[in-house]
Amino acid sequence: MKKILVTGALGQIGSELIQKLRDTYGEDNVVATDIRETEADVVKSGPFELLDVTDGKRMYEIAKSYQVDSVIHLAALLSATAEAKPLFAWKINMDGLLNALEVARELKTQFFTPSSIGAFGPTTPKDLTPQNTIQRPTTMYGINKVTGELLSDYYHQKFGVDTRGLRFPGLISYVTPPGGGTTDYAVEIYYDAVKKGEYTSYIAKGTFMDMMYMPDALNAIIDLMEADASKLKHRNSFNVTAMSVDPEAIAKAIRKYIPHFKLDYQVDPIRQSIADSWPNSIDASSAKEEWGFKVAYDLEKMTEDIIKKLKDKLL
């Protein structure tokens, strides 16, 4: 990658990925786009363009004018939001993806878009979910993600587009507030622990889901995009993970630094039903074997870092 276009740059991943990409590839070589404009560093620290991803013509014009060689398509509605507005989610998630893939095809760029553990469903094996397995999701978000995986494979096989992707677990970050995902409790719990010393979880006790700290997720995107294409057997939607945790496990890790932290529950039936359809843990061995995927943070190291950073930020 030398000149990169990123959609959804003000979202959870984009707001941190943009800065890392600019630090790595140069400020002028990373074009951030989003449907809104703010005073955020993403907007001020390098090229920024307003973009509605359902406007394929505008996306193409931006990509061509900056002569990008890579497109990282992040713009999407997340799981809980998508379930509340399923038709709107299909329009944003699928029209936006098709437009981004078309830009990559026409301009012969490299292409990345994230998938998710939401691409799995209730009939998928729950423990150490394999790279290749049954995918019959029961949510609009999951359906969008499976479709995105298949479309990315199609554009590679049919048109030769260098498509790549990761099936992300829940991503935990102290930088950007939660944005409507089922796993967002794992972000909220740290904020409330530092601010209030207590948290009410909308996900039930004993509900295990895979998670990853954002710095590891950002490294995984760059590592995959820079990987030798000849070694990629799967190419799109590699399983990646750092830990499988439930709310109690996170609370226990927090109490090492905030001993009085209190956790209780008020389960949200919609988000709980989504979580129940997802794996307890996934197998990331294909990513490790094909391009050397690795993580630096487990639950303990992540918790120590987040609490320190949040105390500096909030207190």
Score class of each variant (00 low, 15 high):
Y265W: 05
K252T: 14
I254F: 12
P247H: 06
Q272G: 09
I221Q: 00
K205M: 11
K288S: 08
H260R: 06
E226K: 13
G292Y: 03
W291K: 08
W291Q: 06
F238L: 13
P269Y: 13
M212G: 02
Y202A: 09
M211F: 13
S281C: 01
S286V: 10
S237D: 14
L224I: 02
R271F: 05
F293S: 11
V245T: 05
A249E: 15
Q266P: 11
D228P: 09
P215M: 04
L263V: 01
S281L: 03
L263Y: 02
S286W: 07
G206M: 07
E226R: 13
D228Q: 09
A253C: 06
Y257R: 10
Y257T: 10
I221G: 00
R271P: 06
V295D: 09
W278P: 01
K231R: 12
K231Y: 00
K256A: 09
F238E: 08
D210W: 00
L232Q: 01
P259L: 01
E226F: 05
I254T: 04
L218E: 11
S230M: 05
V267T: 10
P247K: 03
A227M: 07
Q266C: 09
R255A: 02
M212K: 02
I274F: 12
M214A: 14
M211T: 13
M212Q: 13
S237T: 14
F238I: 11
P259T: 00
W291P: 04
S244Y: 01
S285K: 13
W278L: 14
D276V: 15
M214V: 14
N280V: 15
A220E: 03
K294F: 08
V240D: 11
I250S: 01
M243S: 08
G292H: 07
I222N: 00
F208W: 10
A242V: 03
L232M: 04
L263I: 04
S285R: 14
D283K: 14
K205L: 12
D276K: 15
D228I: 07
W278A: 05
R255N: 02
I282A: 10
P279R: 04
M225S: 08
V245D: 02
R271V: 12
F293K: 07
P259R: 03
P279Q: 04
